[in-house]
Design a protein around this nucleic acid. Structure first.
Lengths: 340, 340
DNA sequence: ATGAAAGCGCTAACAA
DNA sequence: TTGTTAGCGCTTTCAT
């Protein structure tokens, strides 16, 4: 017989399986959870029935009794533009998913895009459908952060480890990378190395500047640093112009990201300086800008997949009751191309 | 008193609320669900107690009885590269989330990145934690697609409306957009308009070609179309070279996407043709390539947010039991810049 | 090794 | 208008 409409066939339950297998619901449950003390025959009968009936356990019911759900939320709380354009967040997702998948956890990515979202999310987290969370970019005094901490939900924060108390976090090691880049600029004979620093209100921005200062040590000259507000091409141009005006003999520049570096290169060219001959320049992110620049940009690669993996591992560890890892800093490989 | 450890305080239940409010659990439930027939006093007492106790209903328990979970899954089943780089998927998510959020549904984005993921997902969908799904890029004979249809789960497919039977889908209207672009090329005086077609195995690729053919009608000349495998810069170069060789008098090109168009422009410049004076060229996607090209690319904008919104609306409609919308084609605005 | 039975936290049907 | 009660589908003692 054929049917046209999708039948609303009642889904099989443990009871149905038990009936068909000729055992009790308890036994079915034991088989389901791979517990010992089940006879071969019983197990076979149950497996058989499960297959026949196409039975799949209802996770809501299971969650209700076990008080856990085998799923982890990943909350993305970023402005539209970042969410849409930043390739790192996709990689973080993929990395986290890989680790969680291996542990048989379901990753569920949740978007916080409006006040309403935030409120619904706080409720959702309370709802018992999620065992732990990875938060990509918490905000200060965020209701979500608050909900998480009052709830004692295992959590790990990615990227902005400020204002989250002593919770676990995972971040790339901005400071070390900046230090390394700057040192190399110096080591290759650059005498007057400057920096276009940006977004100092974010840890990424301030840490990159800190690394730059570290590396220069006593040789650090404040007038060789120009602070600009955003990680943007336009700000890169503005920053480079300022630097060039203040210190015409500048021969090395660490730009806090690739877009800034691209803007800087543009200005440098306009001023008749050749990169890397006259001025060496290094960016940060290893984004699409890097390979499209001429010359191709030397830059810091962000191992975003690793960040995702580490974040997932941390939540999993918390779930197992292991002592907190605290903060994890992922170190970034530097990609030396042609610009320095 | 201060406390150092996060107490594992048992979460309040309806029972606790009922007790504190001096009413029955039934009444608490009625308040929770905004049902009528609750006295003002009772309601106040319950609200009070809820606030005191910081009570949040357990969704697993609620799902168990109501058989629905107020959450919708969005399954992303794309190769890594697409997932990481394609800005459209981010926009689709945002669009879908906006609509679902308004309807008080939680969007949960699920990643299918491995065989294991796919199997776990199929089980997850069966688990009753999800009321409906939006599938971004189903595969042929995909276990997920199969699970969805045997389950009768309300679903809508985004982007690849092939092989999904008569299920609802949402897609951009590739064909109309291609038609419009081509017509305009002709209308602005181009006499020999060609196309670099790509990815003909995907509906996006074949539909764009179909639109091109539509627009040209009787004037269509097969030798003015070059098929290349991928939507890539390199294939754009190859395609343009072939076209130029076969038809040196070509004066208009519709490239199936922006990367192809960028490659084509490069080749055209190398061949001493000026864009748009000698050859007019139009891309597709309105991606980052478009504004970085010189001259800036005229191209088709993909309203990905709209796609997300439409997909979400469709699932919601199915959930309300409304008659299926079938397929929805979202029309794409064309952005005329400098290349044609 | 297995069955019976008690609940997980909530909603909904039924009385009152 | 409200309280009582019976489950939703599963796991988990506790007997046996």
């Amino acid at each position: 017989m054929m049917w046209h409409m999708t039948e609303v066939k009642r889904r099989a339950t443990v009871k149905d399986v038990a009936l068909q297998a000729g055992v009790s619901r308890g036994t079915v449950s034991r088989v389901l959870n791979g517990q010992p003390y089940v006879s071969i025959e019983a197990r076979d009968a149950v497996d058989q029935a499960i297959a026949n009936l196409g039975f799949v356990p209802n996770r809501a019911a299971r969650s209700l009794v076990t008080q856990n759900s085998q799923s982890i939320g990943l909350i993305v709380h970023e402005p539209h533009s970042v969410f849409v354009e930043d390739p790192n967040i996709g990689s973080i997702l993929l990395g986290a998913n890989a680790v969680l998948s291996d542990a048989d956890y379901q990753l569920s990515c949740l978007i916080a895009d409006s006040q309403r979202d935030i409120e619904r999310l706080s409720r959702y987290l309370n709802g018992g459908l999620i065992d732990g969370v990875i938060v990509v970019s918490a905000r200060v005094a965020d209701p979500i952060t608050r909900a998480i901490s009052t709830l004692g939900l295992p959590a790990v924060y990615v990227g902005h480890p400020r204002d989250i108390g002593n919770a676990d976090f995972v971040s790339i090691d901005n400071r070390s990378a900046a230090r390394e880049v700057t040192s190399r600029l110096v080591a290759t004979g650059r005498k007057r190395v400057g920096m276009i620093a940006a977004a100092l209100d974010r840890d990424s921005g301030s840490d990159r500047l800190a690394g730059f200062v570290d590396a220069l040590g006593a040789r650090f000259e404040p007038q060789l640093v120009e602070n600009v507000p955003l990680y943007s091409y336009a700000d890169g141009q503005a920053g480079m112009k300022a630097l060039l005006e203040r210190s015409p003999d500048i021969d090395g520049v660490f730009a806090a990201n690739d877009a800034l570096a691209a803007g800087a290169i543009e200005v440098l060219k306009g001023a008749g300086r050749e990169v890397p001959r006259d001025v060496g320049i290094v960016g940060f992110d290893d984004s699409a800008w890097a390979t499209r620049c001429v010359p191709a940009l030397s830059t810091v690669h962000q191992p975003a997949i690793e960040v995702g993996r580490a974040a997932a591992s941390s939540v999993l560890a918390q779930l197992r009751g292991e002592p907190s890892a605290g903060g994890t800093l992922i170190s970034c490989p530097i990609v030396w191309r042609d610009s320095a």
